[in-house]
Simulated scan of single mutants.
Amino acid sequence: MRTTHAHPIAAALAGLALLATLSGCAGSTAARSDAAAGGPAAPVPAAAGAAAADEKAASTSEGTAYAAPGASERQLARTAKLTLVIPDPAKAAKELRGVAEGLGGYLLNENVVTEQKDGYYVEPSTVTVAVPGTKLDDALDALSKIGEVRNRNVGSVDVTTDMVDLEARIASLRASIARVQGLMDKAGTITEIAQVEKELTSRQSELESMLSKQKALAGRVAMAPVTVTLRPPSVVIQDPNPLWQGLTAGWAGLLQSLRMLLTIAGALLPFVVLGVLIWLPIRVWRRRRRPNAPGLLASVLAPATVDAEDVPAAKPLDAPRDRPTTVDG
């Protein structure tokens, strides 16, 4: 019993692995690989083929939930950018949200700057909304009425090929999962069951990844993001007065000089305090060490005293002689 089932199950799993690799190229190639894998290596019973067909039909009906396109339809992922000049960004942002919600959309991102300087907003504001792709033109017309339009840009990316490819790969992978589930009934040993479960888990993970990509692409087609930049009115710049400009520059220079002086004083203050703390103890110590120094210094500097007896008497000065007077005759 063990020898009878080991070889067909292993061969069937190898054929399914090759089939999963080839099914990514195209749906028709995957169908031919399925037929080849079910031939000489491991014949697939009719019940498994019927289950695969039922699974494929079910996958087609489930794929309609994401609006999977046909080969003749064009699927466009559209985006738009709009620049408006408005006096009040908060009020304009509220109106933008109202327009988007009225068309069946919603708010994605909002950055409203209300800070002002000299009566003007310092930075522009941005609001991003999502609207249905089929109503993008109507949304742009309605948004343009909120302010003065300065720029309007609309772009689109064709994702038809990606969506059709994903649809074909998902259908083929679901059919492959159905065949692996059919092999589970034929597995008779623990080794065979483990191999089949490993292949089944791998295919289910790949299927979930593809379904996520398909849903993301469908969302890009269904909803179009619109980024609106809200700018304040332009400021008229006048030529500055030379006198006022000179006074402003001089005042700024004076303040800068004062700041520099204060900075230097602040930097030197710790060193001054440290020097005073070191100098005061030294001064006190020197005074205590030489208490008689001031008296000695005074005695040295005092003028010498001499007794009166030792000083010789001064000689009297000769009286001036009288000069003869002459009288003119």
Rank of each mutant, 00 (worst) to 15 (best):
S299M: 15
R220G: 09
G250Y: 03
V311E: 03
N241I: 06
A265K: 02
L247Q: 05
P281V: 05
I282K: 12
L230P: 02
A314F: 08
L255Q: 08
V236F: 01
L255Y: 03
P225S: 05
V273Y: 04
A265P: 00
P233F: 09
L254S: 08
V306C: 03
V273N: 00
R290I: 03
R289H: 05
A222F: 12
P312E: 02
L274I: 10
W279V: 13
A252C: 01
V228R: 00
A319K: 14
D318N: 11
Q238V: 09
L301F: 12
R259V: 11
V273E: 01
R288T: 12
L262S: 10
A293H: 10
D310I: 13
K315L: 14
L230A: 05
L269S: 08
M223G: 01
L258G: 06
P281Q: 07
L261K: 07
R220Y: 13
G275K: 04
V276T: 09
A304F: 06
R231E: 15
P316G: 04
L262H: 07
G250C: 02
G275C: 04
Q238R: 02
S299C: 14
W285M: 06
V235I: 11
R290T: 09
P294E: 09
G266Y: 11
V300W: 06
P270D: 04
A308I: 12
R286S: 04
A252H: 08
M223C: 00
A265W: 14
R288N: 10
S299P: 04
L297W: 10
S299R: 15
S299H: 15
L243Y: 06
M223F: 13
A222K: 15
L274C: 03
D318P: 14
W244I: 15
